[in-house]
Amino acid sequence: MLLITPPGVYRAQADTELLLAALEEEPLPSGAAVLDIGTGSGALAVAAARRGAAVTAVDVSWPALASAVLNGALHGRRIRARHGDLLRPVVGRRFDLVLANPPYVPAPTPLSSARGAARAWDAGPDGRQLVDRICAHAPAFLRPGGVLLLVHSDLCGVERTCAALRATGLRAAVVARVTQPFGPVMRARAEWFERQGLIEPGRREEELVVIRGVRPR
């Protein structure tokens, strides 16, 4: 899928591809209401729109939103862009499907300290500063029978995410996973990860997972 990704906008990578594969497996009737949280280049938003969904894309980055709208237009699809933090721009709305590829890389500094490109991946000391917020609040934005698809690294705690979603009443399980070598950001922090007990000494790979949460009808 052709995508234009200007400098400073998160480029679709392995986590996006894994979430795209999970999206392809998801039943998505024409006209379904889909929310893409932290849309980046709009890869997920465009993929859902190409299947006939009515897609709303949210991001704190104006260039990212512009990219999502432009990439939608390149594929003959309209993406509704909303600027803001996670779910705040769509308060009061409900969706059939919520897609989330948030920043999740553990960082030695708080999320509020992230600047520039690092805003696309840094997520506080345990990598969960945004994941926890999504787990706590996204279920309320799902229609009965609605689905949340969330991707993150196993360094964040896969069972912790599943437990958090179940605590809100969702049925949650891992539906996709892939193991890959650390990329440049992860490699640069590997020794810090070891000191924090996030990885075993010498480990230089991570498992990406997609967790699916379903709101009962």
Score class of each variant (00 low, 15 high):
Phe141Tyr: 13
Arg88Glu: 15
Pro102Arg: 00
Glu24Gln: 14
Arg160Thr: 15
Leu23Lys: 09
His152Asp: 02
Val178Ile: 07
Gly40Tyr: 02
Ala64Tyr: 03
Leu111Ser: 15
Ala68Arg: 00
Arg189Asp: 08
Ala117Arg: 14
Met186Ser: 15
Ala49Lys: 01
Arg50Asn: 07
Ala136His: 14
Asp126Thr: 15
Leu148Met: 00
Val178Thr: 12
Glu206His: 01
Glu206Trp: 09
Ala12Asp: 13
Met186Tyr: 14
Arg177Thr: 11
Ala190Asp: 08
Gly31Lys: 04
Val158Phe: 02
Val34Pro: 10
Pro108His: 03
Ala64Pro: 09
Val175Arg: 01
Val90Leu: 06
Arg212Gln: 05
Ala176Val: 11
Arg171His: 14
Ser153Asp: 06
Thr56Gly: 11
Pro110Glu: 02
Pro27Ile: 05
Val185Ala: 11
Pro29Met: 00
Asp126His: 11
Ala117Gly: 14
Gly92Val: 00
Gln180Asn: 14
Ala172Lys: 05
Tyr104Ser: 02
Arg50Tyr: 08
Glu26Arg: 14
Gln13Asn: 13
Pro106Asp: 04
Leu130His: 07
Pro110Leu: 03
Ser153Asn: 09
Leu150Asp: 06
Thr168Gln: 11
Leu99Thr: 09
Val34Met: 03
Gly76Phe: 02
Phe141Asn: 02
Pro125Tyr: 06
Cys162Ile: 14
Phe193Thr: 06
Pro201Ser: 01
Ala107His: 04
Trp62Glu: 13
Pro181Asn: 00
Ser112Trp: 01
Arg128Val: 05
